[in-house]
């Protein structure tokens, strides 16, 4: 994010939008079942926290995001390492990977639903599929760009592939893996909420859908705001963590991608 010296100015636009929203409802006295003024949205928050559903559904979505990201990370890092170490394997696998990677994750939703039924498993499988690719590709590219002299050092020390991976390559690839983690947490949240909205009856996405279907717009908008705050907060948290972890290394790859 280049050249943002905004400070407090950034808060003006959201504040004005909130006030305008509130004023519009007060002036026109609009009572409908599609939208709600900000004050009602605050009430929606209080309501959903009060009856315990907000905390419970947030935890459900978090569990899926975490489980799916771990699944994707394990698969992506392991396969990425294998492809990085054995170039021949990479050459045989790259077309297959390039064919599988663009499959939109939601296209797997009916399949996953058919195999696992409703619940955590089907959602974690889809999130795992979606997050595996960034991990795989960033791991592979990190390994293939490791200083060749380091690998020679490993040879001189007589390291096996496992030791080389653990002692040399992973530390060298760590900044990029952290970038992958940040991107993937964002992707995981999007995929989880999408799965919940389309079919899986749990978590924040389902709660959003229920609030809409039961004509409680204040509650629906409260959940929408919550989902946005979570997405935004997770990204900033991981950005902060990233720059803190690699503060001694200087240049960090904070490229906006995904």
């Amino acid at each position: 994010m280049s050249g943002w010296r905004g400070g407090w100015r950034g808060l003006i636009v959201p504040a004005v939008l909130l006030l305008l929203g509130e004023a519009a409802f007060r002036v026109f006295g609009y009572v409908g079942d599609t939208l709600a003024p900000p004050s009602a949205i605050f009430r929606g928050f209080a309501e959903a926290i009060g009856d315990g559903t907000m905390v419970a559904t947030t935890l459900q979505t978090f569990a899926t995001v975490l489980g799916g990201t771990v699944l994707g990370a394990v698969f992506g890092v392991v396969v990425g390492c294998a492809l990085g170490f054995w170039n021949l394997l990479y050459r045989f696998a790259y077309i297959t990977i390039e064919c599988l990677r663009p499959i939109p994750s939601v296209a797997l939703l009916p399949l996953s639903l058919m195999i696992f039924g409703f619940g955590y498993k089907m959602e974690i499988a889809i999130v795992g599929f979606a997050t595996a690719w960034p991990f795989l590709i960033l791991t592979y590219s990190a390994i293939s760009q490791v200083e060749p002299r380091l690998l020679e050092v490993a040879k001189v020390f007589g390291f096996g592939p496992f030791q080389t991976a653990w002692k040399l390559v992973l530390p060298a690839a760590a900044p990029r893996l952290m970038t992958a983690l940040r991107l993937c947490i964002g992707i995981a949240l999007v995929v989880a909420v999408t799965t919940e909205i389309v079919s899986n009856p749990q978590g924040l996405g389902h709660e959003l859908m229920i609030a809409q279907e039961t004509l409680r717009p204040h509650r629906m908008l409260a959940y929408l705001v919550l989902v946005g705050v979570i997405g935004w907060g997770l990204n900033n948290l991981l950005l902060a963590l990233q720059s803190w972890m690699f503060r001694h290394r200087g240049e960090i790859d904070t490229e906006v991608a995904a």
């Binding site: 939208l35 909205i197 929408l224």
Partner: peptide
Amino acid sequence: ALPASAVVPVAIA
């Protein structure tokens, strides 16, 4: 940062 599919319920409403 807002997952785009989260606006689907609002759009349906």
